[in-house]
């Protein structure tokens, strides 16, 4: 007979998730720098847990592409590669544009209210928040209720976020904010095709421009 185990009795999973979240946040925010070497012992001390959950969390981050593990050699934060950032933006854009097109008719009054303030604040905040569970992407993905797309975005958005956090080009961010505003306005007005066009604009034009700026600054610093 299998030993009955309740959900609450799996603290190991909770610890791993906690370590994962802390490392993820540090990488996305840039506290752990692109290319920075990661040592198990340091992370164990920092988070205050044993080696197993640290390795599990690192494996999970490696699967997302945020960490590189060369077995028995080194583990490091994956450097930012502008070409990969472009590919990520394009791919995430396909999902988000599709969801915007198909879920606009499903939006509730609360959703429209949340979208009404989507482009407020400074450009960097508006764009970064927009592309998270707290922004328009979150509103739309929750409303469509497609768990597969939610899982894929959870996997790839942090890497996009990290790239956005690493750039400081105000002009490019301001243009991207314009796309977010156009998208939100069309969504509030219930115009699905127009909102989808704004989403395509964001992911095919204004966000890739940020990746281009980043590539240019990287070249300069080399």
């Amino acid at each position: 007979m299998p030993v009955p185990v309740t959900e609450a009795a799996s603290p190991r999973r909770l610890i791993r998730d906690e370590v994962f979240q802390r490392l993820l946040q540090a990488i996305v925010d840039g506290d752990l720098l692109p290319g920075e070497q990661l040592y198990d012992a340091e992370i164990e001390r920092w988070v205050g847990v044993s080696r197993t959950p640290v390795r599990e969390a690192l494996n999970q981050l490696a699967a997302m592409g945020l960490v590189e593990i060369l077995p028995q050699r080194r583990t490091r934060v994956t450097p930012i590669d502008p070409e990969r950032v472009r590919q990520l933006i394009a791919t995430v854009g396909v999902l988000v544009t599709g969801v915007v097109r198909d879920a606009t008719p499903l939006l509730t009054d609360d959703d429209r209210e949340a979208l009404g303030t989507a482009a407020d604040g400074d450009a960097a905040t508006a764009v970064r928040t927009g592309l998270s569970a707290d922004g328009f992407v979150g509103v739309y993905v929750r409303r469509l209720d497609n768990g597969t797309i939610a899982r894929l975005l959870n996997r790839h958005l942090p890497e996009v976020q990290r790239a956005l956090n690493a750039v400081s080009s105000d002009a490019a961010l301001e243009k991207a904010r314009g796309s977010v505003k156009a998208l939100a306005d069309a969504a509030v007005a219930g115009k699905a095709d127009k909102a989808a066009r704004a989403a395509a604009d964001l992911f095919d034009k204004t966000l890739p421009a940020i990746a281009d700026d980043f590539a240019a600054t990287q070249k300069e610093t080399r």
């Binding site: 791919t91 999902l95 544009t97 599709g98 497609n146 768990g147 597969t148 797309i149 894929l152």
Partner: peptide, 12 residues
């Protein structure tokens, strides 16, 4: 899950 995945595949 299958329906979700095929919808997503269609977008790609």
């Amino acid at each position: 899950a299958i329906d979700e995945a095929i919808y997503t595949t269609g977008l790609l």
